[in-house]
Design a binder for these strands. Structure first.
Length: 105
DNA sequence: AGACTGACGATCC
DNA sequence: GGGATCGCCAGTC
């Protein structure tokens, strides 16, 4: 059964353009739970059965990728996401903003 | 009911 | 800029 929380997260994550990434905190804020960023990450772990949801485009504020998910790094690289030497995502270039779509910047 | 943990965030060093 | 610590909320043991 899909919880309303999962539906909200999927809606936001699905809106992330290719080559861009967003943070759990940003999603949490968009779904109305600015302090539940951890719940978002935990919930996303349950969305693994949703291939249509690019959950690999979701990282934390540090640009750190999900632990135990080495495939995520390869997926991001395939989309043109720039990673730093330490393996973190370059949020400076790939941080997606709902208000700032492809038409802007 | 109580304690621990976590795909986190912000702050401090 | 990177690493360590504290704080928040919900889920799990």
């Amino acid at each position: 059964m899909n919880d309303p929380l999962i539906e909200d997260i999927c809606a936001v994550v699905a809106a992330i353009p290719r080559g861009k990434v967003t943070t759990y905190g940003e999603i949490a804020r968009l779904i109305g739970r600015p302090q539940n960023s951890r719940l978002v990450g935990r919930t996303m772990g349950r969305i693994t059965d949703r291939p249509h949801i690019p959950c690999h485009r979701v990282v934390n504020s540090q640009g750190r990728l999900a632990p135990g998910w080495d495939e995520q790094r390869d997926l991001l690289l395939s989309e043109g996401v720039t990673l730093k030497a330490n393996g973190n995502v370059d949020m400076k270039r790939c941080a997606w903003r709902p208000f700032d779509t492809e038409e802007l910047q």
